[in-house]
C-alpha cells in the first residue's frame, strides 16, 4: 500500500513530467498572452464605439447570416458524404477521401483564387459560370432592379468561400461520427423491416445527432474565421461583402487599431462560445450511444 505512491512519483520521473508541463505551459502562456494583450489594448469605451458603428453592425449581421447558411449547407453535404465514406466501399474511395481534404490543406488565398478562376475563366457552353448564374437569376432584376444577380464579389461569394473550407471539416466530423456507430445498427433495422433509407433516417441519424451538432458548430466556427478566400473571391466592400474577419482587415487598413482589436475580441468571444458548446455537447459525440452497441450495458 505504501509503495504505490512511490511507484508513481519516482525521482527519475521528475524531469520527464516537468518537461511535459513546461512545454504545454509555454504554449498555453502564448495563447493566454495573446488574449491578454488584446484585452489590455482596448477600453470598454472603444468596444462600445466599435459595436455602435453602423458598418460593423452590418458586418456582424452579415457574418451571422453567412456563417449560419454555410453551416446548414455544409451539413446538407457532409451528412450524406460522411455516410458514404464511412459505410460503403467503391472504386476510387481513397482518391475521393484525399480530394475532400484538399480545402483543408490548401492555402486559403489559393482557394479564393481558384474560385475566382472557376467562375470567370472556365467557359461552359460558351459562357462562364458567373455569366450562367447571372443569366439564370436575371428574373431577380424584374422584381428588384437595383440587384445585379451573380456570385463573385457579392454575398453568395462570401457563403461559397466559407462553404468550400467549412464543408471539408464537417465531412471529416460526420465520417468520424458514423465510423463510431457500428453498422450492425442498420443491419438490425433492416431485419426489423426498414429499407436502407429508413435505417438511416430512423436509426442511424438520431444516434448521430451529437456528431451532426458538432459538425455544424465546427463548420460555423470555421466560416467565422475564414478570411483569405473571402478577400479574393468576395472582396471586402463595406456594407456589401464585409464580414467580421474582413472588418478587422479594413479597420487595420484605415489605421483604426482600437476598432480592429475590439472586433477581434468579439470574434474571440464567439469562438470561445463555440468551443464551449463543442466541448460540453459535441465531445461526447456518439460515445453516448455506446449503449446501443452493447457497450453501455453496465448495471
Amino acid at each position: 500500500m505504501e509503495e504505490e505512491p512511490k511507484r508513481h512519483r519516482t525521482r527519475s520521473d521528475g524531469p520527464f513530467f516537468y518537461g511535459l508541463v513546461a512545454i504545454a505551459g509555454a504554449y498555453l502562456l502564448l495563447i493566454v498572452s495573446l488574449l491578454a494583450a488584446d484585452a489590455q489594448y482596448v477600453t470598454f469605451a472603444s468596444i462600445g464605439e466599435a459595436l455602435g458603428n453602423a458598418d460593423i453592425q452590418d458586418s456582424i449581421r452579415l457574418t451571422l447570416v453567412t456563417c449560419t447558411v454555410t453551416a446548414i449547407l455544409s451539413m446538407v453535404v457532409a451528412v450524406p458524404t460522411g455516410y458514404l465514406l464511412s459505410r460503403f466501399r467503391f472504386p476510387g474511395k481513397r482518391l475521393v477521401d484525399a480530394l475532400l481534404d484538399i480545402p483543408i490543406l490548401l492555402p486559403p488565398l489559393v482557394i479564393g483564387l481558384s474560385l475566382l478562376i472557376l467562375f470567370h475563366q472556365v467557359p461552359i457552353l460558351g459562357r462562364t459560370i458567373e455569366e450562367w448564374v447571372a443569366f439564370a437569376f436575371q428574373w431577380i432584376t424584374w422584381l428588384r432592379p437595383d440587384i445585379r444577380p451573380g456570385v463573385t464579389f457579392k454575398v453568395p461569394a462570401v457563403i461559397l468561400a466559407q462553404f468550400t473550407v467549412s464543408c471539408a471539416f464537417a465531412v471529416r466530423t460526420m465520417k468520424t461520427t458514423f465510423d463510431q456507430i457500428h453498422p450492425r445498427h442498420e443491419d438490425v433495422a433492416l431485419t426489423l423491416g426498414c429499407n436502407r433509407s429508413q435505417a438511416f433516417w430512423l436509426v442511424l441519424l438520431p444516434q448521430a445527432w451529437r456528431g451532426v451538432f458538432t459538425g455544424a458548430t465546427l463548420a460555423w466556427a470555421r466560416a467565422l474565421g475564414e478570411f483569405g478566400p473571402i478577400l479574393v473571391f468576395a472582396g471586402a466592400t463595406r456594407g456589401r461583402t464585409e464580414v467580421l474577419s474582413t472588418t478587422v482587415f479594413l479597420e487595420i487598413n484605415i489605421g483604426n487599431l482600437q476598432g480592429a482589436v475590439a472586433v477581434s475580441l468579439l470574434m474571440i468571444l464567439l469562438a470561445l462560445v463555440v468551443i464551449l458548446i463543442v466541448r460540453t455537447v459535441g465531445e461526447k459525440t456518439v460515445l453516448g450511444t455506446a449503449a446501443g452497441q452493447g457497450g453501455g450495458m453496465h448495471a
Partner: peptide, 29 residues
C-alpha cells in the same frame, strides 16, 4: 429483403438503439 423474410435477429453485441426507449424498441418493428 431482410425485412421481408420474417426473421427476428438478435446480434451478439445486442445493438440497442441509444436514442430509443425500451418501449420504442419493442414497438419499432
Amino acid at each position: 429483403r431482410p425485412g421481408d423474410r420474417g426473421i427476428g435477429f438478435v446480434p451478439q453485441d445486442t445493438v440497442l438503439f441509444g436514442n430509443m426507449t425500451v418501449r420504442r424498441h419493442l414497438g419499432f418493428g
